[in-house]
Amino acid sequence: RHKPSVDVLFRSVAREAGKNALGVIMTGMGDDGARGLLEMREAGALTAAQDEASCVVFGMPKEAIARGAAAHIVGLDQIGRFILNQGH
């Protein structure tokens, strides 16, 4: 019934957009997205993960952080600004 797909999306973005992309992984259960976000970072994309304090479920961001996929860790209330400023 459930098929994790964030890794598929992020892997495609890494391949097609590379350094021109920005990826943010937010609250969620499991590790879906961690590998794909790392591929994005390795391709030169700007990457971020939601911080633990503002997550309902810290699973997905925690895995991305542990794997070194997130260059930045930001709170939920900061993600919009982060995206608009492209991490600056």
Rank of each mutant, 00 (worst) to 15 (best):
R1Y: 00
R1I: 02
H2S: 04
K3D: 14
K3F: 07
K3P: 05
P4F: 05
S5H: 03
V6Y: 02
V6S: 02
V6F: 00
D7H: 06
D7P: 03
L9M: 10
F10T: 02
F10I: 02
S12T: 11
A14V: 07
E16Y: 13
E16P: 01
A17K: 15
A17D: 06
A17L: 14
A17Q: 15
G18W: 11
G18I: 13
A21C: 12
L22R: 11
I25A: 04
T27M: 07
T27Q: 09
G28T: 05
G28R: 05
G28Y: 03
M29Y: 07
M29F: 13
D31T: 14
D32W: 12
G33C: 07
A34Y: 04
A34R: 03
A34W: 02
R35F: 01
R35P: 00
G36P: 05
L37H: 01
L38Q: 05
L38W: 01
M40T: 04
R41K: 15
L46F: 01
T47R: 06
T47D: 02
A48R: 09
A48M: 09
E52T: 09
V56E: 03
V57E: 09
F58L: 12
F58N: 09
G59S: 10
G59T: 10
G59K: 11
G59C: 10
M60K: 12
E63Q: 14
I65M: 15
I65K: 14
A66H: 11
A66C: 04
A66I: 07
R67Y: 04
G68N: 12
G68Q: 09
A71V: 10
H72A: 13
V74N: 03
V74D: 05
V74W: 05
G75F: 02
G75V: 04
L76N: 04
D77G: 10
D77Q: 09
D77N: 10
D77F: 02
G80N: 14
G80R: 14
F82W: 15
F82G: 11
L84V: 13
L84S: 08
N85K: 14
N85G: 07
N85H: 13
G87R: 08
G87F: 08
G87N: 09
G87K: 08
H88W: 04
